[in-house]
């Protein structure tokens, strides 16, 4: 039974009826007042059967202190499902105020969401890294990007040519005279001013890209007016430091990056 407000002054609710809108299984027609409520089991498919459900006769509205103001339906026949599965343990006890645990519940949910975001960020970072790294040089390209040259194979005064990244690579074992001559060159005579010391790491080893800076021909070693390189295409003369001395080329021969891992080898690239 639900609480029915009753005052001594007036009876606001004088009539309590069971909820007729959803009859409990049995289709016994309950009588309310003088109207017959038809059994609900019958399907209301036609306008006739629907008309049976509506009230008949004239509608009357009565109001006043003594009259019935409203009808309260006692929902004793409605069963509310058990939702405790969806409730947190902290709020299951109906005698405790839920505000006590509000902050910890909220913090817990935020923490779980934060952890999920961290894991998602980790996964996303790895996926992005995977795709981005696929754009970098592949292993076979990297394997060819460096060339290791045994210096002992190159006698003094000789220029050896290697294929490196599709271009000719000159490794020149310079003689003492060549070194002395290149060291002594007056820098004011040079078109592309660079001292010999800036072009070699070890004086006896000159490492160059064998591409003429004019139009990209391959110069011939130990030829030309300056004893270094001579480009047969348009007659550019380079000295034994690979510097342009005469002819149309504007710049000195390019020096690639290289290191000497030990005395006997050079690693270019």
């Amino acid at each position: 039974m639900i609480n029915v407000p009753k005052t001594s002054m007036m009876s606001a609710v004088s009539l309590i009826v069971p909820n007729v809108t959803k009859p409990v299984v049995k289709s016994v027609a309950p009588t309310v007042g003088k109207y017959l409520v038809p059994p609900a089991k019958k399907a209301t498919l036609t306008s006739y059967s629907m008309s049976l459900l509506t009230g008949k006769g004239a509608m009357r509205v009565t109001s006043g202190i003594a009259s019935t103001a409203q009808i309260r339906l006692a929902h004793t026949d409605l069963r509310v499902p058990d939702f405790s599965d969806y409730r947190r343990d902290a709020v299951k006890d109906s005698n405790k105020p839920t505000s006590e645990s509000a902050s910890s519940r909220r913090a817990f949910t935020y923490m779980v969401i934060g952890a999920g975001s961290v894991a998602t960020a980790y996964a996303a970072k790895n996926v992005v890294t995977m795709f981005v790294s696929s754009m970098s040089a592949s292993a076979d390209v990297l394997a060819l990007a460096k060339i290791e040259i045994k210096l002992a194979d190159i006698p003094e005064g000789k220029n050896a040519t290697f294929k490196w990244r599709g271009k000719p690579l000159f490794v020149r074992h310079r003689t003492a005279e060549e070194i002395a001559a290149e060291q002594a060159v007056d820098l004011s005579q040079l078109r592309d001013v660079q001292h010999d010391n800036d072009r070699v790491q070890k004086e006896e080893w000159l490492i160059l890209l064998g591409v003429c800076t004019h139009l990209g021909c391959v110069p011939i070693a130990n030829a030309g007016d300056y004893g270094g390189y001579y480009c047969p295409c348009h007659g550019s003369h380079y000295d034994a430091s690979g510097r342009i001395r005469k002819g149309p080329a504007p710049l000195n021969l390019e020096i690639p990056e290289y290191v000497f891992p030990d005395e006997d080898t050079v690693l270019v690239g």
Binding site: Y86, T109, V112, I113, A115, G116, A119, T120, Y122, A123
Partner: peptide, 16 residues
């Protein structure tokens, strides 16, 4: 392990 963690968290968040 990451996907398992995310699955559990997604389930929690869905219920929430």
């Amino acid at each position: 392990s990451i996907l398992t963690l995310l699955m559990v968290i997604t389930y929690y968040f869905k219920r929430h």
